[in-house]
């Protein structure tokens, strides 16, 4: 089966200039955990997830740890989030994006998701335009 037959046909995406605060609103209201970043022609230039924002809000040394169990309280996280809320997401987005073509095979995508441990992959057409997103649950659902 082709990716276009199983993907979620949603073009929710953002520009690199939008603020962290706006990104959090979009993720929270749309119920997604990540969103593609596109240029003026809806071509993929990046990807950003809630994890990227959480990482950005944690003190630098926490990158060396696996979790936030050592953080004294949530105030530290909150304080840092307030500091970065007006920053453009460009600063925190992933520039090396994993993506697939809409005419790629589902098996190829499943393999990529497992190997790279990713949940959502943006889907583009052969012109490079964003046409949807494929999620783990999209893949699982079509196996039933």
């Amino acid at each position: 089966m082709k990716v276009r037959d199983i993907m979620t046909k949603d073009l929710t995406s953002i520009e690199k200039e939008i603020s962290v605060k706006e990104l959090i609103f979009i993720l929270n209201s749309s119920g997604t955990t990540s969103v593609p970043v596109v240029d003026d022609e809806e071509k993929l230039i990046g990807f950003i997830s809630e994890s990227d924002i959480i990482k950005a809000a944690l003190p630098g040394y926490f990158e060396l740890l696996d979790g936030i169990a050592f953080i004294p309280d949530m105030n530290q996280l909150s304080k840092k989030l307030v500091q970065i809320e007006d920053d453009a997401i460009e600063k925190y987005m992933q520039r090396e994006v994993v993506w697939v073509y809409d005419d790629d095979d589902d098996l190829q995508v499943a393999d990529m998701m497992i190997r790279k441990n990713i949940r959502n992959i943006p889907v583009v057409n052969r012109e490079g335009h964003l046409v949807g997103v494929v999620t783990r649950i999209n893949l699982v659902q079509q196996l039933l």
Binding site: T8, K9, D10, L11, F25, G132
Partner: peptide, 13 residues
Amino acid sequence: RDKGVTTNFCWTS
């Protein structure tokens, strides 16, 4: 989405 429409809505409060 169930009806095959591609969506691109802006979420508002």
